[in-house]
Design a protein around this nucleic acid. Structure first.
Lengths: 249, 249
DNA sequence: CACTGCGCACTTGTATACAAGTATCGGTCG
DNA sequence: CGACCGATACTTGTATACAAGTGCGCAGTG
């Protein structure tokens, strides 16, 4: 499955398009689920989880046929993915799934560290006492579930989401969203080979404490340090998985 | 012209499409100048320079007619602009030129400061003695032309481009490109009302010195400080131009 | 005169048709 | 047997046709 260039197993693709991943939380946006969006969501998920292999060529006609839509929405979805750099343009004009360059993962995390650091700073400058209390509560909760890694991850995501919401920084959020797909992709790749873990609880607590102390610079530094430790861990986990991405010449 | 929602004057639009802004420096990329790209370049330029007013509604049929191409490339160009946030989606599905929110300019510069800071750090870690010499030479050149503001700006752009090239950080560059249009847009808006200037020469020299000293953290800090001073200047210049953007309710 | 209901014109989203360029594969020739 | 050449099939890019949903305006009415 990993090396197969096409959409394998063909499971309810046509069903997925037209309904797509309708997250229950999106109650606010009553968007007309344009088929292009559905195709985009589908392909994006498959690229991130690896069922669409790196370097796999994606052509509009075969995607059209397999998904049961015309080329138009497929084309639009591919352009969206291209803007997100999840697919790269071939010299001839087509696209292929972006290669997995493990060395580049570091770069993704570097950028993420700066952006999330900025958001932490902004959050610190805007947080009300109630907000601070909520962050502290999340850290306490994380501590309580610290033995269940997936729970820790879930609470962690919630923590970061809270920071992002507090920051209310449109540009920071937009750019973070731009690279989130790649972060998730590397994370999915490293998931199988986790070699260790940092102390998520303490690192998050450091961020929360800095915000509680109303020290924006400290908040930024703590968040940045946290992401950079995550980066080091991911890098360590990824080292050696190159054997699973034998696509580069 | 400022308040007119449509493409005014209609000067050689059809001529522009099909040839487009073929920058002489783009010799490396022998891209088939797809009409969609030409439309994108054209609209992007008009949004940045203000000839397409903020909040102006852009509809595919009229753009098609005025540019002499079908809706397909127009649609694609609009989606690219949307991904870049230079146009925003209307609830009904159409798009309009992104409003000019002066308060948001600060956010753009904040993000830019982090990204360029990261690039300066990376550049510092990779620069060869020759590279350092080139940067120093640019600062010297900037000093020599310090009385001609446009020349200073030109050399400054070259300096930043050199840093970016040295950094060789795909993600930093990609995200920087994402917001460059907005930076240019605010800069164009502020150009008419420049109220002062920071000492570009000294600020750039600080960056070059840090890199020459092989101090990545200092390079990052110097670049970040430089951008933040530019931000303060732009903010100051922009204050009061709200009268020129009387579009919000 | 204000309000309500209908109808039109316009918009986007999708599908399909057409043109042009390119890589590939087979055949043929040296 | 290898290399070159031509034709074919496939790709993207563009144009056009069709369908559906939405807002706006106008007329009629209380």
């Amino acid at each position: 499955m990993w090396h197969d260039g096409r959409v394998t197993t063909t499971p309810d693709l046509r069903a997925a398009v037209g309904q797509a991943t309708t997250a229950p939380g999106d109650a606010g946006l009553a968007r007309r689920q344009s088929g292009a969006r559905a195709v985009y969501d589908l392909l994006r998920g498959r690229i991130i989880d690896g069922s669409l292999a790196p370097d796999a060529r994606l052509t509009e006609p075969v995607l059209s046929a397999e998904l049961g839509v015309s080329r138009t929405p497929v084309r639009e979805a591919l352009r969206l993915l291209q803007a997100e750099a999840l697919v790269v343009e071939l010299p001839t004009g087509g696209v292929r799934v972006a290669p997995l360059d493990v060395a580049d993962a570091r770069r993704v995390y570097d950028v993420r560290a700066r952006l999330e650091g900025l958001l932490a700073r902004d959050a610190c400058e805007r947080a009300t006492p109630d907000d601070v209390a909520r962050l502290v509560r999340l850290v306490t909760l994380m501590d309580a579930v610290r033995d269940h890694e997936d729970e820790v991850l879930r609470v962690g995501a919630q923590f970061h989401g809270e920071i992002e919401a507090l920051a209310d920084n449109r540009w920071g959020s937009a750019l973070l969203r731009q690279i989130r797909g790649h972060v998730d992709r590397y994370r999915a790749l490293a998931a199988r080979r986790r070699v260790g873990t940092t102390d998520h609880v303490d690192e998050h607590r450091a961020v929360a404490d800095a915000i509680a102390s109303r020290d924006p610079a400290a908040a930024e530094a703590a968040m940045r340090a946290h992401i950079e430790r995550s980066a080091a861990l991911a890098e360590q986990s990824l080292r050696g998985v190159g054997s699973a991405t034998d696509d580069l010449p």
